Simulated scan of single mutants.
Amino acid sequence: MADILETLRIKMQAAVDVLDFEEARRCRDQINLLRGGATAEDAVQADLSGIERQQPGAMGLGTSQQRMTPPPGWKPPPKPDPMTKGRSSRGAVKPER
């Protein structure tokens, strides 16, 4: 395992030297998968194109949580009408608690 990691590290550095940053990114992601417990075959076959990384500079509590993106076509529900808040269906005012 250490030999594979060292080979990938050297390959990543060689890609950076020739300014092939896409190949360097693939090597980096494979190294991270191997360090995370994946087998060498799984790391080579993994599709890493959809992985999004946290943007640099995002620090503080809760920044490591994934951002939820709504599905295509989703619209937020309409906000309630403030003129009808607290009223029953017959028009009488409900007591506030």
Rank of each mutant, 00 (worst) to 15 (best):
S64W: 01
G86I: 03
P78Y: 09
D3K: 03
Q45I: 00
R9T: 13
G62W: 04
T7V: 09
A14N: 15
Q13S: 09
A46L: 02
L8A: 10
V44Q: 00
L19H: 13
I51S: 07
A24M: 02
Q13H: 09
E6I: 09
T7A: 13
T69N: 10
G73Y: 06
L61R: 14
R90H: 04
Q55L: 12
E96G: 06
I31S: 02
V44I: 10
R67A: 14
P76M: 05
G57D: 11
Q54I: 11
D29G: 02
L34A: 07
G73S: 11
A40N: 02
G36I: 10
P95G: 08
I10S: 10
E6C: 06
P95R: 15
T7M: 12
C27N: 08
I4E: 10
A24D: 07
A14K: 14
I4M: 05
E6L: 12
G86N: 08
V18E: 13
R53T: 11
D29T: 07
R67I: 12
E6M: 09
P70Q: 08
F21T: 15
E22V: 10
W74V: 02
T84C: 04
D47G: 02
R35L: 11
Q13C: 10
L19Y: 10
D47Q: 05
V44R: 00
A43L: 07
G50L: 13
G50Q: 14
W74N: 08
R97Y: 14
P70K: 03
V16Y: 06
E23D: 13
P72Q: 11
S64M: 08
R90L: 07
R9W: 07
A92W: 07
G37Y: 09
R97N: 15
L33P: 02
Q54R: 15
A14R: 15
A58R: 06
R90F: 03
P70A: 12
D47N: 14
L8N: 07
A58K: 03
K94A: 12
G36N: 11
G50I: 04
E96I: 09
M83A: 14
R87A: 06
S49W: 05
